[in-house]
Amino acid sequence: MQDFAQALLSALALVITGDGELWAIVLLSLKVSITAVVFAACVGMPLGAALAVSRFRGRRVVTVILNALMGLPPVVVGLFVYLALSASGPLGVLHLLYTPTAMIIAQFILVLPIVATLTRQTVEDLDAEYRLQLRSFGLSRFSSVPTLLWDARISLMTALLAGFGRAIAEVGAVIIVGGNINHVTRVMTTTIALETSKGNLALALALGVVLILIAILVNAAVSALGTASTRGATTGLAHA
């Protein structure tokens, strides 16, 4: 108990004094996860929206697969990305293994199904409401996609935050493809795992505190968006 209290105190000291090593790790975590989410947004939102408005055979199957992919175990994604990037893998020539780029790729794969699925759901709901009116304005199914995405912007922000929450908190994928190399690929979650096993509770706890703060901030942002949407009535999910 004594140990724990001591560790917690040193942890808080690290956070408050802005310890260099700590913040380098936090910044790398943010950089990797935000980059992964931005790329997932660029691919996942148009993909989800196109899926929402298109009618083709096999659409249901694609939807179900995408839904299932939301629950991909990070360790398995890590394993596949590792195999692809390893020296003998198809992308081995790129020498990306154990770099932040490898971690971004892994998190991109984890976040993409979340963004695409939530976008599809949101846009589909909004399209059900807007469809006839937009056709009446003379917009076709596909030319109404930008309108649907824009009008669903608050719900889509929530989807991106959900994706970010998953990315920043996962450990399995980044530890496999990043390797947890000091000053290179060490992010919050992998450092917590390593330092805890080494008995360096202060740094582990300090990172834990930061991670929890980030989680709280993300949730606060989601609920603030929710409030904004009911007041301003600007989400795809809220109906009058």
Partner: peptide, 26 residues
Amino acid sequence: QAMVFQRPVMLRRSVASNLGFALKAQ
């Protein structure tokens, strides 16, 4: 032509941009 529905379909935008939207679509 134009159509008005039983339940008005309001875009999640300002009053002014709801008007502007129809004109832009034209």
